[in-house]
């Protein structure tokens, strides 16, 4: 019987400081045992437990795409004991990854459909995975819109990649910041809900929205989508809750009868409407 609590040993291959406050870093890992990479076959939207011996584990969304081989990437906000230690670690250090865990964005349903990605702040990680995946399988999807906002230009994740995506003609990028003091800032200024109102396509049977961001962004974006006529089974969200096991055993992350770790983290708004707001 495979031990679902066993973290695959990995090496840190690269560390990128993502944001101007230096609170977000992207870690690129490679598996010490190549066969573990095959076992770690994942879909965009899934997460994993990053494990540091002596400190513990943290559940983090996978930022790389399964179309990117030879490594996995996670962008980690410095918050608590494990993440603070991780931020001090160096290239070459050994740690562990346990997963992939949870469900993923409904790629079978999304095939052939228009997809509107709406993200805010550092919740953009699994959305980054999703965009990279869709671009690699571009013919499988209809129109793609990406609305991504952060507090300031320096707080946007993956800035170089965003700039490349801006240049593409098969992707509608709508980058925005709450405020910019950079006179050369050439993208949008405004909160995500406002930009969504301005840029998101009209709702139809073939258009799905994936929203991932801070609660305040979701709270004000949802009415915009409602006004646009997006059906709640066409709005897809990803939840977070405190977790330990990641496999539906320890019961920390339950929201009513479902576990965020195992039955989620991805839910349609339609499903969330039937659950207590304990997240």
């Amino acid at each position: 019987m495979q031990n679902p609590y066993y973290p695959y040993p990995v090496r840190i291959d690269d560390i990128v400081v993502e944001t101007e406050d230096k609170n977000l870093k992207t870690f690129k890992f490679s598996f010490l045992n190549p066969e573990d990479e095959e076992k770690f076959a994942y879909w965009p939207g899934q997460f994993a437990e990053l494990s540091i011996a002596g400190l513990g584990e943290i559940p983090i969304g996978i930022a790389s795409s399964p179309t990117e081989k030879g490594f996995v990437k996670f962008t980690v906000n410095k918050v608590g004991k494990v993440t603070t230690h991780l931020h001090k670690m160096k290239v070459g250090d050994i740690m562990g990854i346990r997963g992939p865990l949870g469900n993923w964005y409904p790629w079978e349903t999304l095939e052939g459909k228009n997809v509107v990605i709406i993200g805010g702040g550092f919740a953009f990680t699994t959305l980054r995975s999703s965009i990279a995946y869709m671009l690699e399988n571009r013919d499988k999807f209809g129109e793609i819109h990406v609305i991504y906002g952060a507090r300031s230009p320096g707080m946007l994740l993956y800035r170089e990649e965003l700039a490349e995506w801006e240049k593409r003609d098969d992707l509608n990028m709508h980058i925005t910041v709450d405020a910019a003091d950079d006179p050369d800032w050439k993208y949008n200024v405004g909160f995500v809900p406002a930009i969504t109102d301005e840029k998101a396509p009209e709702a139809d049977e073939n258009t799905y929205a994936i929203i991932c961001g801070p609660p305040i962004m979701i709270k004000f974006t949802q009415p915009v989508l409602d006004a646009r006529g997006y059906a709640h089974d066409h709005i897809i969200m990803s939840l977070e809750n405190r977790m330990k096991c990641g496999i539906g055993m320890c019961s920390h992350c339950n929201v009513g009868p479902v576990f965020v770790c195992k039955d989620g983290p991805v839910f349609t708004l339609d499903r969330l409407n039937q659950l207590p707001k304990e997240y």
Partner: peptide
């Protein structure tokens, strides 16, 4: 009751 925590 089966809830548990994991610690190092």
């Amino acid at each position: 009751c089966w809830c548990f925590d994991i610690q190092d």
